[in-house]
Design a binder for these strands. Structure first.
Lengths: 219, 219
DNA sequence: ATTATTTTTTAGGCATGTCTAAAAATAGTG
DNA sequence: CACTATTTTTAGACATGCCTAAAAAATAAT
């Protein structure tokens, strides 16, 4: 049985591994976990002993097959709970992350499976992220792209945002941006990497921070 | 913010306080928590500093008003989740205790309140125990009585069982005893405190252990 | 190729929550 | 009342998960 901390590390390593195929460095993981590199070293040693990651001193770490499966199961739980909170308990999609962070650590695969069935086997969570099935299989073909990477004059609809601070969700609410919102990139400014977009007829300038966090699907 | 361990201690002290009005002794609490008296001493000191219990060396402990409120909120969460698991996720009433033990520690009063509303403000959990409302108020007038305390020739229906081992639930299942089952006490034996009962036309003998755990409502 | 810089690890400490063994306080008994 | 038995507390230890500071390894730069 894994501790919550161990589970959170697995999740973080999984998440970082989606962006790069090389091993995850200690510093990067420390940043992701909001902790110190020395703490990370301690933990990766422990996870390595448990065969959940492969780790060589000074060489970073990678999930093993077993570790990856575990990580996906945690993500599965997280996303299913988010669906429940939004669809059934009337939470806003911007309030569910923290609660799901807690719920994802409940140990009972029967609970997860019953919940999934109760929710009608949803394929995506309220942020547009795909939900793995019981066997850890899920559609990775989410061809969404960050606003910062979209070419000028291209438009698409919001299919996801990066999990972030509640401040970010406030921001989205303020501009009435949600799943399905149509956004067109009008102009991109290289000097500060900001992006000028068109939403519902209004021009808005997004800083690079924001542009990196909003994902749209083109066409 | 309380740790899970602190919350479990509060719950245990609350539970023991229902059976006796004197202070809860260290040994009794240790037994309830399946831990050692020395560990209990450490914890009660901590809870005492936090003003959740009153504690004098060698004199046992008692919940303060604040501590009692906290305990009731945890019980509220536990029971609401049990209702959810049984009514919505199709769990048997004998499988939900352990999972609810985990879910009761999720920190979000908004979640609890939304869940309560979603469930339609249930008044009792699947074991027949009353569910405190948002303000910690609940009907204590559960006039149920343990089978061991029922007089001969009296009959009633099962309204609750004491949370116990899964072995006990297996036992109940085996004899097809659940909420609503009618039980009549035929004879009581003082030499071993066993009870002979009539269920669905069949005579069954219950040991005192079992008779202490099954609660029926008379009339 | 030899420094300088950055990354990573080690060493030692701290808080939580548990344990065992021993000491202290309380309760029970002749 | 004194002696024994029980209960409770203290003292010291251990695992987890984190920290800081310093050492070691790897990487970059001159």
């Amino acid at each position: 049985m894994l501790t919550q901390s161990e589970e959170n590390y697995l999740k973080a390593i999984y998440s970082l591994s989606e962006d790069q195929k090389e091993a995850i460095s200690t510093n990067l993981l420390a940043e992701k976990m909001s902790t110190k590199p020395s703490s990370v070293t301690d933990m990766v040693k422990k996870l390595s002993v448990k065969k959940l990651i492969s780790y060589q001193k000074y060489q970073g770490c990678e999930l093993t097959v077993v570790g990856k499966k575990r990580a996906i199961q945690i993500i599965r739980k997280h996303r299913l709970w988010e669906v429940f909170l939004v669809n059934n308990l009337n939470f806003g999609w911007d309030e569910v992350h923290e609660i799901a962070e807690q719920l994802e650590h409940i140990h009972s695969s029967k609970l997860t499976d019953h919940l999934e069935e109760y929710l009608g086997f949803p394929k995506v969570d309220p942020h547009g992220d795909p939900i793995p099935n019981k066997n850890g299989v899920f559609e990775k073909i989410n061809k969404s792209i960050a606003l910062s990477d979209v070419d000028t004059a291209v438009k698409g609809i919001v299919v996801g945002v990066e999990d972030g601070s509640s401040g970010f969700f406030q921001f989205l609410k303020r501009y009435e941006i949600g799943l399905g919102t149509e956004i067109k990139v009008v102009e991109k400014f290289n000097f500060d990497l900001s992006v000028l977009v068109l939403i519902d007829g209004k021009e808005i300038s997004f800083s690079s921070v924001v542009a990196n966090k909003i994902f749209i699907q083109i066409k």
